[in-house]
Amino acid sequence: MNIEIEELAKEFGTERALHPVSLSIPSGALIALLGPSGSGKTTLLRILAGLEFPTSGRVLFGGQDATGLSVQERRAGFVFQQYALFKHMTVFENIAYGLRARKRHERPTEAEIGRRVNRLLELIQLPEIGTRYPNQLSGGQRQRVALARALAIEPRMLLLDEPFGALDAKVRKELRQGLREIHDRTGLTTVFVTHDQEEAMELADLVVVMSMGRIEQVGKPAEIRAKPASDFVRAFTAA
């Protein structure tokens, strides 16, 4: 599903987190929002998820205006920075949460929930951990469980906030590949936020470089490397 962002702006009190920005995300793409902290990238992601609402502008999902849709109606799979797994639930229950939260007539049967959760555990290559609690998992395992939980709701898109931020360098590299594979298998339009230019360049089809609440440049990694649109982009992507 393609995402259109039209003249989207966000103010927190008197502070402008996002100047009017426009962006068009093609269906099935893997997009990186790249920028330093305070560049507005997380705000933009949270607006897409329905966790924040824009001061002005519109968001369109598949051509339909989604600006006023509630967070629940958006059906966006969201992976949080520290994963925000439910500490008091097992991995199985974490992943099943979105299915159980559905209205009664849309809710799968218990057996069907079990099948789907197990399929997701296999997708993230951790089939044996369903009965464990989040605090018994490594950082990398937690990230993959968070991914499975987001995928369980059969989302219309996948949004990830610094998905590799809490991991050490070695695990980070492995999981980059993991995210790429999951993206390719599900075909979901995927947007992830990062401040790591190497990560963005290596993983994304399209990189959106942001600074101070504005989009500096949108392009394929090679294009951005070859023709940085501003001094900021040149400096930031050279780092």
Binding site: A49, G50, L51, V71, Q72, R74, R75, A76, G77, F78, F80, Q81, Q82, A84, L85, F86, K87, Y97, G98, A101, R102, R149, A150, A152, I153
Partner: peptide
């Protein structure tokens, strides 16, 4: 607020 926000993105109502 992260865990609550996670529940909301998974489709849970405020009460749930």
């Amino acid at each position: 607020r992260a865990e609550e926000e996670a529940a909301l993105t998974l489709g849970a109502s405020g009460w749930r």
